[in-house]
Computed example of a mutant assay.
Amino acid sequence: MLIMFFSVVIPTYNRLPILEKCVRAIAHQRWHPDLGIRGYEVIIVDDGSTDKTVEWLKEHRHEFPCVQWLQQEHLGPAAARNLGIQGAKGDWIIFIDSDLVVTSTFLEAHARCLMREQKRLGIEDVTQVPAFSYGRVINTCNFADPTSERYKMTDFSAAYFATGNVAIARHWLEKAGLFDTQFQLYGWEDLELGVRLKKLGLRLLKCPEAVGYHWHPPFSLSQVPALIQKEIERGRMGVLFYKKHPIWEVKLMIQMTPFHYLLWAILSLGGLLNEKTLAPLLQWLINIDRPQDALEVARIFLNWYNVQAVYAAYQNEIKNEIKNVM
């Protein structure tokens, strides 16, 4: 029988309204008594929030006895997750995002998935099973009732290791070297760790029964500047990712190929289709209650910003290397 104690690590930064729903969901888990789960803890890592996140956690500490929190300056999700791992008591770490609302059998689903793999391999110590379970993430704009959303084709993810909903033995995280805290801007810190985990031979176990509902506000034009900034940051962090792992697989992930450059250059008409020229169409889609379609259209220029940022950051790296040599 599996004997498992889970530590659920949740980094957060200024997401208090949805964090409340996240905490209430993860703090009320149930599982079959014969399954072998002996308990769990929830570790909220506040990454320098200014929205009174910690004050809310203190006010509700008696309501959620399994929840504790750690604080750090605003250093990014990689550093926050590492801090959570260091403060965790469990041999099993589950990562979810602070805007994810899970079902009441979330932990049980991950445990059952890992138990099946242990049985298949015949390994006595479950923490030594070279695998991790990756749950289903369903995107939703429904704040009132996030779990009412159905799975959509656009929710599919081909990522090998993403921290939105994943359970992994602490042993493997430590062996891989935890998250790289150089990734302070938006993007890639989890997939970069995934490359190192893959080198260790870990197998990805799809676990669709472990469902998390990823809430985000309906798309609006006011979000566009922040979304553009994220794409620029993602491009810069993508080059850091490639610098650490200069392989074709990473090039494809970060869109640093001639194909991606030409694709988004053509689709955006060389940048002519941008946040300004497409604003009337986006607003019209929003007005007829199709914000998700508006977001998909916006990806035309968002991806163009990302690809340009990737190439600009890469060219800057080359220039710096030449200066260092000289």
Rank of each mutant, 00 (worst) to 15 (best):
2 L>R: 02
6 F>M: 07
6 F>E: 10
8 V>W: 05
8 V>T: 03
9 V>P: 02
11 P>H: 04
12 T>R: 02
16 L>M: 00
20 E>T: 01
20 E>A: 08
20 E>Y: 00
21 K>R: 13
24 R>V: 02
27 A>D: 08
29 Q>G: 11
33 P>Q: 11
35 L>R: 04
36 G>V: 03
39 G>D: 04
41 E>Y: 14
45 V>P: 02
45 V>G: 01
46 D>W: 00
48 G>A: 11
48 G>E: 01
55 E>R: 00
66 C>K: 11
68 Q>W: 09
68 Q>R: 15
69 W>N: 01
71 Q>N: 04
76 G>V: 09
77 P>K: 07
80 A>R: 11
87 G>N: 12
88 A>H: 10
88 A>I: 09
89 K>H: 13
93 I>A: 11
94 I>D: 01
96 I>P: 03
96 I>T: 08
100 L>A: 09
103 T>G: 14
103 T>L: 02
106 F>L: 10
111 A>P: 07
111 A>F: 03
119 K>V: 11
120 R>V: 07
121 L>T: 05
124 E>R: 08
124 E>I: 08
127 T>A: 03
127 T>K: 14
131 A>F: 12
133 S>W: 10
135 G>M: 12
135 G>C: 06
136 R>P: 02
138 I>V: 15
141 C>Y: 10
141 C>D: 06
146 P>M: 05
148 S>H: 07
149 E>K: 00
150 R>D: 12
154 T>V: 10
154 T>Y: 15
158 A>C: 09
159 A>W: 05
160 Y>T: 12
160 Y>V: 07
162 A>D: 09
163 T>R: 04
165 N>G: 09
166 V>A: 04
186 Y>H: 08
192 E>A: 14
194 G>T: 01
197 L>T: 07
198 K>W: 10
204 L>I: 05
207 C>A: 15
212 G>Q: 07
222 S>Y: 08
225 P>M: 10
225 P>C: 09
230 K>W: 11
231 E>V: 09
231 E>D: 15
236 R>G: 15
236 R>I: 03
236 R>P: 03
238 G>E: 15
240 L>C: 11
240 L>P: 04
241 F>E: 08
243 K>T: 13
245 H>Q: 07
245 H>R: 06
246 P>T: 05
247 I>H: 06
248 W>M: 11
251 K>M: 06
264 W>Q: 11
266 I>C: 10
268 S>R: 04
269 L>F: 14
272 L>W: 12
274 N>A: 03
274 N>W: 02
278 L>K: 08
278 L>Q: 10
279 A>T: 02
279 A>E: 15
286 I>T: 01
289 D>K: 15
292 Q>D: 15
292 Q>A: 15
298 A>V: 04
299 R>N: 10
302 L>R: 08
304 W>Y: 13
305 Y>M: 01
309 A>L: 09
310 V>F: 06
312 A>W: 06
315 Q>C: 09
315 Q>P: 01
316 N>W: 06
317 E>I: 02
318 I>W: 06
319 K>L: 10
326 M>C: 12
326 M>G: 14
